[in-house]
Design a protein around this nucleic acid. Structure first.
Lengths: 343, 343
DNA sequence: TTGTAGGCGTTATCAA
DNA sequence: TTGATAACGCCTACAA
């Protein structure tokens, strides 16, 4: 069991050459048994090669393989912020799909910066990934010329792109934000609420716009009115600050709807700081159903979005266009303590 | 501004050859201006090449570059679960460092499975990454022979490995879990608590063991006693189920300490289900200080751990041994409403 | 079934 | 400074 490395003079990882030499066969034969697709190698040779590979701790050089084959076993994922549970769960779904398909996953963080996003796609393109999945561009097409150009270059070279959420020109998988918003609006109106404040992202952000539109439709259909739309963002602090500024003038019995649960958590915190009890004085609701919403006190009423499934589908669809399903994933209202029925 | 692709007959992405031809220079020159390190190219040539590259939407093939250079601009990260905020924040730090260093980041998910972990390292090795960062193996060395073998093969081929948390044989960055536990124990004893129940992972998991040891030392030093150690795990449900089973026999005035905030959140939920009010009837504390802990009600007392910084340091240290700092990162107790002072 | 040899897109050495 | 040309590690007709 000596750790001497026979047949390996140079430094660095052992190569296929090393294995072939060690096994006393040709490069081609070694290649066939270790990385080849066809099974036409005599058992005796096969064993010798496998033993040698094991012995040397051989691991195929994927870069070399990729240049030789012309394609790499990689898929790339772009997210705004990997520490955000929203993107974390999407990433988990993508990772599961990639693993199942035997692909490695490269992740890049956009920090919600369109410039960065374009640069990253350019960098990622260098890997010649099988596909790239965008879970970052929440803004509908505008000012993202560079990004579009990069994606164009990628697809025209044979790459596959899938966007999570509303896809501007690319294939996309998404959830039914309008339907989810509508269902939430209807449900809250049904509980007796008549006034709502919506804490959203800037106008033009499709996910935000759809959720507002759906909610407004459902809520007004049930006899309620959206009295104000606050422009914040998608972060906890955005929700907090937006409500912090107007907390005093929010009437009791109003329901404040965050464009996401993360935002709604900020809303709750801000309300508390102003002495307003979430769920009693002022109701609160959100979108996404991140785990935190379940453990919050009171529990946060929200619209459940199957984030991991979304990531998984995006991956599958990016790998095989035939698998693509235009139908947005259905979402579901989850009522919790933050929106008790009103007399 | 025609979108015809001059000089590119084949399919696929344009190559350096294409650019050189388009610019009317040699391959070598094109390589020098686009990817080369030295600056010795005449401005006139340089411009022609850059124009051609821009024109064709050229993006260097990283695989080819890697095989030619013998090293790739990739770093690999292994985490147990990317949807977990704990790992998400570590990943964010690693990603930031990788970006600063101009490296691409490959992420793989172990699902806390040692077998998988070894397999993944093997797969990752294929990329010949500059370094691999392990934020997954929470178990101190045992039954992970395969993993050790893979890591050995990697390092002996020139690779660099850094473990986050207690590193079994590899370089590692970590936090002062013992000191943090001790500080928490001292603080809680100082608040008047005398009985504690610790909800931990299995024995042998270093992070868990250290936190228990430190806490016990601090708490007993302050006059308290750890009356029970529950063996659960690192998930929210593990914490929930462990406490769910014994909730009835937890005396009022006890503080239940979770080995992580995620666990503590489960503990709180379980207590509530049994009619015990966290922070009033039974106190609760945790470790890590994930964002959720701040917004929980009551706020969760915890030991702040700079997770993102941890990831960042791991990355830096993996790239440059000289930067390595053995000193564990200091942690800090954060007292919140879940552990009010007792008379 | 096995081996030989040319090619994948780049880098790097060495003349010119 | 520029340009041939030999690597880099691997795959794959094609020939043996």
């Amino acid at each position: 069991m000596s750790e001497a490395n026979p047949g390996r003079a140079r430094s660095g990882a052992p190569t296929l050459q090393d294995v072939a030499r060690e096994a006393g066969v040709s490069l081609a034969t070694a290649s066939r048994v270790l990385n080849g697709t066809a099974r036409r190698v005599a058992p005796a040779f096969r064993e010798k090669v496998e033993a040698a590979a094991e012995q040397l701790g051989y691991s195929a050089n994927l870069s070399a393989q990729a240049t030789a084959r012309g394609s790499s076993a990689i898929v790339a994922l772009l997210v705004a912020d990997i520490a955000d549970p929203y993107f974390g769960r999407i990433a988990a779904g993508v990772a599961r799909g990639a693993d199942e398909a035997g692909l490695l996953l490269t992740i890049a963080i956009t920090e919600r910066d369109q410039q960065r996003e374009a640069k990253l796609v350019r960098a990622l393109r260098g890997q010649r990934p099988r596909s790239v999945i965008l879970a970052a561009s929440r803004t509908s097409g505008r000012a993202n010329e560079e990004l579009v150009a990069e994606l164009g270059a990628y697809t025209s070279a044979g790459g596959s792109v899938v966007t999570i959420g509303p896809g501007g020109g690319t294939r996309s998988v998404g959830v039914d934000n309008i339907g989810g918003g509508r269902a939430l609006g209807t449900a809250l109106a049904g509980l007796g609420y008549r006034r709502a404040v919506f804490v959203a992202a800037e106008a033009g952000v499709r996910t935000s716009d759809d959720r507002i539109a759906g909610f407004t439709e459902g809520f007004e259909g049930g006899g309620g009115a959206v009295v104000e739309v606050l422009r914040a963002g998608f972060s906890r602090d955005a929700g907090h600050d937006a409500v912090d500024a107007v907390a005093e003038r929010i009437e009791a019995g109003t329901v404040v709807v965050g464009v996401s649960d993360v935002v709604a958590m900020g809303v709750m915190a801000a309300l508390r700081e102003h002495g307003r009890a979430p769920g009693q004085d002022v109701a609160v609701a959100g979108f996404d159903d991140i785990p935190t919403s379940h453990d919050a006190v009171p529990g946060l009423t929200t619209v459940h979005v199957p984030l991991e499934e979304l990531g998984y589908r995006a991956l599958r669809s990016s790998l095989d266009a035939a698998v693509h399903d235009d139908e947005p994933l259905p979402v579901e209202v989850v009522l919790r303590g933050s929106t008790p029925a009103r007399g």
